[in-house]
Design a protein around this nucleic acid. Structure first.
Length: 646
RNA sequence: GCCGGUGUAGCUCAGAUGGCCAGAGCAGCUGAUUUGUAAUCAGCGGGUCGGGGGUUCGAAUCCCUCCACCGGCUCCA
């Protein structure tokens, strides 16, 4: 047996016999480490920790602390769940069972059986039994013909379909206990690594994600190497539920839905409307300083507008149905762009007018399919922080960068630090179908955007075939407290609509040229942005946003009159306050104020009124001691200023 | 739109197997109390049991249908 060199992440090289496994290497380091190894990265590829290594290799041992290690365990867990399912429901057909961000799922065709939540528990129990058995995962390479024969015998059309796309010589099977599956791997050494399992939910899912394919039953689950991890995870889920914007929106009286108004059409209650006005104020201030003009446009327009813009053929199905009026067809607007283009075009433009920036909190209506609606995050009526910048090619870089800087400024104000910029480009194969057929312009604008992104040092991820039909776009992806990923804001480049609308400007050489358009919406829509903020802040809005900033709590009704004077002084400082003048005990008033998440409370009794002081209490933090009213008010003003000047 | 689930008072929820006037807590209103840092006491009002249709002597409960919401899938200019 010859020796091979194993290079570890710290750069050290160890000699081992060829055929050594990652597990053997781990053992040679320490037994404790070996117990935690789930899989291993061998020359960049994730392998079973028990798979023999026959050549010199870079080796990274993967444990629960590595995403790849977690994925290995969850992937193995999906297999184990499949084994448990086959135990109870022989003859079911299995589709795919991958690991996901939090756990794993398996798509299953149960035939006529209706698998419900009640069935989850016994499957869960069986899984734990299988885990205890410490069944090893055994990898086996398989010729394609043999694999096809196996699944033909097993009568599993889904696996056979998957096999069609796989190359012969590249097919592996994994077996653990009584279960064998077509699988690329890798897997954990044996099922005993799984100490806790929870099946979370059941859902329908189309085979291969195509809505024309049959619907399978998807079972979601999660497993852990320690049962305390599971408990912690379930607590986290509970916490997330408390932050759900739909729940908090009701509790804090921000918005509501009504059957007679219609699905996806939020009604903004006074507190929610206040948030909207604060955001609009912020946007207006920011955009004024950045040289935008504010405009206003109607909520409907003629069909001809959307034919010119080219939106109609792409989006007809997701627009509200048309209205016939006076011999013309009208649509509720689902985007503001063409309206703004018409404003640009209302008068001739010269190069001296550019960049020309038009901003509007525009109200749009989109017919989202009923199943796609989701609280405030996906709605049918929305108010967008929209603007369009018309500029020359030479101005593009600077304008685009300014827009990006505005995004970053907003993120700082709101303390959003977990986000990614997703740069969506076109797919040349779909020119003329999904994308306007201008290959050279696509390349040019995509290069321009990419260059700005690189030169400004903003981290981004490039995704092909996700662009808008008229140009590449940058989406800002954020993560809500309940773990869902959302596009919060979007930023697009458009070389196409200036041509469709024949928008031009006069150059210094007295020629007519088309501008480039930047579409941008850093605060997205009120609906989604506020939905996100509710979860982001868990309903505890920062002082400048909080609809009510201070709740004044008199110790007893005797002091209500005195509190009115304090209220008056706070109002003179533009502070939003109100008095709890009910005949309740102070403990009750504090409790109610705390639950309503008002950021500041002041407790007022005989002592305070005599000395001209207020006893300050912060939401969630308790008693802060006493201070003069003026000092309290100035502290609030100072904090707000700091929050907004980033 | 598709698969599965849910729908009882403003909110959170009880109401096996169909059977006296459909209940509780919180919130609301009225009164008493006049309170020192997370729930004072008493009384009162409030419900087409999501809508419609059916089965039955009798339906919140069983069946059909529509609507809305929830978990996903698909989609997201």
């Amino acid at each position: 047996m010859s020796n091979i060199n194993i290079t570890l992440p710290d750069g050290s090289v160890k000699q081992h016999e060829a055929g050594v496994t990652a597990m053997d290497v781990a053992m040679s380091i320490s037994e404790g480490l070996a117990r935690n190894v789930l899989s291993a990265k061998v020359n960049g590829e994730v392998w079973d920790a028990t798979r023999p290594i026959t050549t010199d290799a870079q080796l990274t041992l993967l444990t629960w602390n590595d995403d790849a290690g977690k994925n290995t365990m969850w992937h193995s867990s999906a297999h184990m769940m499949a084994e448990a399912l086959e135990f109870f429901y022989p003859g079911i057909k299995l589709a795919i069972g991958p690991p996901i961000e939090n756990g794993f799922y398996y798509d299953v065709d149960f035939g006529d059986y209706n698998f419900t939540e009640e069935d989850l528990q016994k499957v869960e129990k069986k899984m734990l039994e299988l885990a205890k058995a410490k069944n090893p995962f055994i990898r086996k390479e398989m010729p394609k013909a043999e694999a096809v024969a196996y699944f033909t015998e097993k009568n599993d059309p889904y696996k056979l379909e998957l096999l069609q796309d796989l190359e012969d010589g590249n097919i592996t099977f994994y077996t653990q206990g009584e279960f064998t599956d077509l699988c690329r791997g890798p897997h954990i050494p044996h099922t005993g690594y799984i100490k806790a399992a929870k099946l979370l939910s059941i859902a329908g899912a189309y085979w291969r994600g195509n809505e024309n394919n049959p619907m399978l039953t998807r079972i979601y689950g999660i497993t852990f190497p320690k049962s305390s991890d599971l408990t912690a995870y379930l607590e986290l889920l509970e916490e997330a539920k408390k932050r759900d914007h739909r729940k908090l929106g009701k509790e804090l009286e921000l918005f509501t839905f009504d059957d007679d108004i219609g699905p996806g059409l939020p009604l903004w209650l006074p507190n929610g409307a206040f948030l909207i006005e604060q955001l609009e104020w912020l946007a207006k201030e920011t955009e004024r300083k950045a040289g935008y003009h504010r405009v206003r446009t109607p909520h409907i327009a003629k069909e001809t507008l959307y034919l010119t813009s080219g939106h109609l053929p792409y989006y007809k199905d997701s627009m509200f149905p048309p209205m016939e009026m006076d011999g013309s067809t009208y649509y509720l607007k689902s985007m503001n762009c063409p309206h703004h283009h018409k404003i640009y075009d209302a008068s001739p433009k010269s190069y001296k007018d550019l960049p020309y920036r038009l901003a509007e909190y525009g109200t749009c209506y989109r017919y989202e399919k009923s199943g796609e609606l989701f609280g405030l995050m996906r709605v049918r009526s929305l108010q967008m922080n929209d603007a369009h910048i018309y500029c020359t090619k030479e101005q593009f870089e600077q304008e685009f960068k300014a827009v990006n800087d505005m995004y970053l400024k907003y993120f700082k104000i709101f303390g959003i630090d977990k986000y990614i910029m997703r740069f969506s480009t076109h797919d040349p194969a779909r020119l003329g179908k999904k994308y306007v057929d201008k290959p050279e312009l696509w390349k040019e604008t995509e290069d321009m955007v990419r260059n700005v992104l690189i030169s400004s040092g903003i981290p981004f991820k490039e995704v092909p075939d996700e662009a808008a039909f008229y140009g590449p776009k940058i989406d800002v992806q954020v993560y809500s407290a309940i773990g869902k990923e959302f596009t919060l804001a979007t930023n697009q480049v458009d070389f196409s609509q200036p041509l469709s609308f024949n928008l031009t400007y006069t150059t210094p050489e007295n020629e007519q040229k088309h501008p480039i358009i930047i579409h941008r919406a850093p605060l997205g829509t009120h609906e989604r942005f506020i939905g996100f903020l509710i979860e982001h802040y868990a309903g505890k809005f920062p002082l400048w946003l909080a609809p009510l900033q201070v709740k004044i709590l008199p110790i007893s009704e005797k002091f209500n009159e005195g509190c009115k004077k304090i209220l008056q002084s706070l109002e003179n400082y533009d502070i939003r306050a109100s008095i709890d003048d009910r005949s309740e005990k102070i403990g009750k008033k504090i409790r109610d104020a705390e639950l309503s998440k008002v950021p500041l409370m002041i407790v007022i009794g005989e002592k305070e009124l005599e000395e001209g002081l207020v006893s300050v209490r912060k939401q969630g933090e308790g008693d802060q001691g006493t201070m003069p009213v003026e000092q309290f008010a100035e502290a609030i003003q100072r904090e707000i200023k700091e929050l907004l000047s980033v």
